[in-house]
Simulated scan of single mutants.
Amino acid sequence: MDIGELLVRDGIVLKSGASSKRQALHSVAATAAQCLGIEESVIFDALMEREVLGSTGLGSGVAVPHARLPGLGGVRAVFVRLDTPVAYDALDDRPVDLMFALFAPPSSGADHLRALAAVSRAMRSPELREQLRQARTVDAVHALFVRDTAATAA
Rank of each mutant, 00 (worst) to 15 (best):
R136C: 12
A151H: 14
R121E: 13
A140G: 09
T137L: 05
V146F: 03
L116G: 06
L144V: 07
A154C: 10
V146L: 05
A153W: 09
V141N: 00
H142E: 06
A154G: 15
A151Y: 13
M123F: 10
T152N: 08
E130S: 13
P126S: 07
H142M: 05
A143Y: 09
E130N: 12
T137G: 07
L128D: 06
P126E: 04
A143N: 11
V141H: 00
R124G: 08
H142P: 13
H142K: 09
V138L: 09
T149Y: 02
A135G: 10
A118Y: 02
L132G: 02
R136I: 08
T149W: 01
A117H: 04
R133H: 11
E127R: 01
A154N: 09
Q134M: 14
L128C: 13
A154T: 07
A135H: 15
A154I: 08
L116K: 01
T137M: 09
R124K: 11
A143L: 07
D139N: 14
L116T: 03
L132N: 01
A153V: 11
F145E: 00
A143M: 09
S120C: 10
A122L: 15
T149G: 13
A150D: 12
F145K: 00
E130W: 07
L116N: 05
S125L: 14
A153Q: 14
S120I: 05
T152P: 04
M123E: 01
V119I: 13
A154H: 11
A151I: 15
L116E: 09
D148K: 01
E130Y: 13
V141A: 00
A143V: 05
H142I: 02
A140E: 11
V146Q: 06
Q134T: 12
R147S: 13
E130P: 08
V119L: 08
Q134E: 14
L128F: 13
A154P: 14
A117P: 10
T152H: 04
L116R: 01
L132M: 11
L132V: 04
Q134I: 06
L132D: 01
A118Q: 10
F145W: 10
V141I: 06
V146G: 01
P126T: 02
T149S: 15
A153N: 15
R133E: 03
D139Y: 10
R121W: 09
H142D: 10
S120T: 12
P126D: 05
V141D: 00
L116H: 02
R133N: 09
R133G: 08
A143H: 12
A118H: 03
D139E: 15
A140T: 06
A135D: 09
P126W: 10
S125G: 13
